[in-house]
């Protein structure tokens, strides 16, 4: 699989401050079309903050976030999260944030919200267009659940799903928004090796079959090394390395960040 060279996301000199704390310090990152990119780093390095910046939950202090869709460039700094989702980003959360008291199918149907447009009047009058739209939403969502492998718990409440399924449901919900870039925040956290392997397959399948690029935050190095084509390493908000898995494995800066510096006593 050779990734095409067209960039879909360019992040330039992104900086984010929380009061006096610089959480992200002029961070650069590019993602090409149909590429799986991983963002790794020690705990508290600023990975999730980076996610929150590019999905609009935080407004970055400075820098550019530019998306490139069909040859059209657009700067999305400080755009509201729901509009960013509409533009084609979809994310999952580190600590699962499903709509717990809604069914599995409804969770995915929420993802269709921004791709449909029936209003209050449409809901009350139930005209042809809104009935058709509702049908489409249900079918689309069900098909996604089938792809993810959750079709047997369609009517179960999301809260009652086992942990691994909840993680997968988050991915399903994100896919329902028809993104071109999927941002996964520690999708394998708390999973056993079997589940992690299944997840790796799933992520690969999403990329190969749907042609969706993936940006991944993960602590499970086996998963990261297996999946990603490009790895960015961040520590204290700064990029300390960038490269293919083979390069990262032997990069002295990375080893230092994870294991600490060797001291010659």
């Amino acid at each position: 699989m050779k990734p095409s060279k067209e960039k879909i996301l360019e992040v330039k000199k992104l900086t984010m401050d929380f009061g006096g704390l610089r959480a992200i310090d002029s961070f650069d990152l590019d993602i090409c079309d149909k590429e799986i990119v991983a963002l790794i780093g020690p705990n508290g390095a600023g990975k999730t903050t980076f996610f929150n910046c590019i999905t609009g939950i935080y407004k970055p202090a400075s820098g550019d976030i530019v998306i490139n869709k069909n040859g059209k460039k657009e700067r999305i700094n400080g755009v509201r999260p729901n509009l960013i989702t509409e533009k084609g980003f979809a994310r999952t959360f580190q600590n699962i944030r499903l709509f717990g008291n809604m069914t599995v199918l409804e969770n995915v149907m929420i993802g269709r919200h921004c791709r449909s447009k029936s209003s209050v009047a449409g809901a009350i009058l139930r005209n042809k267009a809104s009935i058709q739209e509702e049908k489409d939403i249900v079918n689309f969502s069900y098909n996604i659940l089938k792809k993810i492998g959750l079709q047997n718990s369609v009517n179960e409440l999301a809260n009652n799903l086992p942990y691994g399924d909840q993680r997968r449901l988050e991915i399903a919900r994100a896919l329902a928004t028809e993104p071109f870039l999927l941002l996964l925040d520690e999708p394998a956290a708390g999973m056993n090796p079997n589940e992690t392997a299944e997840l790796a397959d799933l992520i690969k399948r999403i990329r190969d079959e749907e042609g969706i690029s993936i940006l991944l935050i993960e602590h499970d190095m086996k998963l990261v090394m297996k999946l990603s084509e490009l790895i960015f390493v961040v520590d204290y908000g700064k990029k300390i390395a960038q490269g293919t898995p083979e390069e990262i494995k032997v990069n002295p800066n990375v080893i230092k960040a994870y294991l600490g510096e060797e001291t010659n006593a």
Binding site: P81, R97, M102, H113, S130
Partner: peptide
């Protein structure tokens, strides 16, 4: 309203505002 697009969005808002926004609502 309950089982329409709008109704579902209302319930989602109750469940989790941040996730709700991240899903494009």
């Amino acid at each position: 309203l309950e089982d329409s697009r709008i109704g579902r969005a209302l319930v989602a808002l109750r469940e989790d505002e941040t996730a709700c926004q991240a899903m494009g609502i």
